[in-house]
Design a binder for these strands. Structure first.
Lengths: 122, 122
DNA sequence: ATCCTAATGATAACGTATTTTCAATAGCAA
DNA sequence: TTGCTATTGAAAATACGTTATCATTAGGAT
């Protein structure tokens, strides 16, 4: 039986309140504002549980550690700021992806990453 | 002074003749057809040199090891086959990427990955 | 309030990709 | 052909994200 702990609450809150996908480090830092003694192992454990139960989604990023975001959001992609390293959500989807797919290939899924500077760093 | 070796030649050839970006393992296997005793350390060393001199480009992929391809190709993106694990080139680019970028953000670059089954695995 | 045990925190261990080490080999200039 | 030293191969060492270990803490049912 799953127990309700202040650590899990802090981690869940960090993810729910974030408007962007968070790394385990970012989750740790946010959760520490509420539960200072929380450790990284708890973040990994909780994130794993939340992902298994389906309430969060893993965002796998090129050349960077995984991020996590609450599931159920509308289809979207991500913007990665080269200055502050944060990753942001972008609504919508580019057009004509199916035209890229070579003949005979089957498209099941896609990912788009845009790199640049976020509004704060720009 | 850089020396010409059969190992470097085999690695360069593997990359030049490939129609798709290769992992260090794939480079090793291809190069071994020509130089059976070649080791993975030489692949890493040579790939690093080639990247520094600009003749190849590193393709950083979500959740997978880096790939390498010769530079100078026309702008393109990649298709990743979930069955055989190979990555293929796709000419062209989706439309409307700039519409995704939030107000105040600056787009410098972008990457698109499509996942599915390649023609051989389909 | 007590007891059982799930959960935690600190840290060691792991997995995997990549780099370094070092003795042996092989370009290549003289 | 010789000699110098860049390059190689094998294996050890790193880097770094993630998982496991284990003694301690704290939900929460009774």
């Amino acid at each position: 039986m799953l127990r309700k702990t202040i650590q899990r609450d802090a981690i869940r809150k960090a993810l729910v309140h974030a408007a962007r996908p968070l790394t385990t480090q970012e989750i740790l830092e946010t959760a520490q504002e509420e539960v200072p003694q929380i450790g990284i192992a708890t973040v990994y454990r909780t994130v794993k549980t939340l992902a298994e139960e389906g309430s969060i989604r893993t965002v796998v990023v090129p050349g960077e550690p995984d991020r996590y975001e609450v599931s159920g959001k509308a289809h979207h992609h991500h913007f990665s700021c080269r200055v502050c390293g944060r990753m942001f959500e972008m609504d919508g989807c580019p057009v004509g992806l199916e035209n890229l797919v070579p003949k005979g290939f089957l498209m099941e899924d896609h990912e788009v990453f845009i790199y640049g500077r976020c509004d704060e760093c720009n």
